[in-house]
């Protein structure tokens, strides 16, 4: 079980480009979404003429379904400077991968709740760290795609683009660098030093 929490207004404001296409996942039974708050925020953005289109759907972590739905909204997506996704970390990563070359922004942090955990039949994984880093990493999760869960860049161990721990695995930070380069967001490298917070408590923060 996991829950998502809306990122702060300040965080989002400083992050987002002029125009966004909004993708809102309304669910699967594993995730509890802050639906009302997200709706409020979207209507604020709509009033401010920030939004080129909204797609509300479920299971955005299913790439086949999602790519069909996104195709139908291609024009709205093309009109925007980026895609803002309200979902758990897995959903954001699915969208980032599908819309390669396009800036994708995470609107939520994903936090673990004790109990049953959603099973994701995908290569994307979310460690429910509670401080979603996807906005700094081009939509690739550093917590799960890097063997050391590093949040400040590549270690010295990558060889031929592979991870020092498992040569069958691509180095997550090599992927992150290439993705940031492709979407023109290498400036994210100059963000302040990131420090994990292991004291995040789902009950307190919600």
């Amino acid at each position: 079980m996991l829950i998502t929490k809306l990122k702060s207004r300040e965080d989002l404001q400083s992050l987002l480009p002029e125009k966004v296409f909004v993708l809102l996942c309304n669910g699967c039974k594993e995730v509890s979404f802050p639906e009302r708050e997200i709706e409020e925020l979207i209507s604020e953005f709509l009033t401010a003429d920030k939004v080129t289109g909204v797609l509300t759907t479920d299971y955005i972590c299913n790439p086949e379904n999602l790519s069909l739905r996104l195709k139908r909204r291609r024009a709205m997506i093309d009109e925007a400077d980026g895609v803002l996704v309200f979902s758990c970390g897995v959903g954001v990563q699915t969208v980032s991968d599908l819309l390669e070359g396009r800036a994708v922004y995470a609107g939520c942090d994903t936090i673990r709740l004790p109990g049953f955990q959603g099973v994701t039949p995908l290569e994307y994984d979310c460690g429910q760290c509670g401080q979603c880093y996807l906005n700094l990493t081009g939509g690739i999760c550093p917590v799960t795609a890097c063997s050391k869960s590093l949040v400040n860049g590549q270690c010295g161990g990558a060889q031929n683009g592979r991870c020092e721990v498992d040569p069958n695995m691509e180095c997550g930070w090599e992927r992150i660098y290439r993705r940031l380069e492709a979407v023109g967001r290498l400036d994210a490298i100059k963000c302040p030093t990131q420090i994990r917070n292991f004291a995040i408590d789902a009950n307190k923060s919600h």
């Binding site: 590549q154 990558a158 930070w173 992150i176 660098y177 290498l186 490298i189």
Partner: peptide
């Protein structure tokens, strides 16, 4: 700190070096 100048991930290494300088 260290940096790996002959790494085949040289762009990612330089990016990390920059973060170390900033830190």
């Amino acid at each position: 700190a260290v940096v790996s100048p002959c790494s085949d991930s040289i762009d990612a290494q330089l990016a990390k070096m920059e973060r170390k300088v900033l830190a």
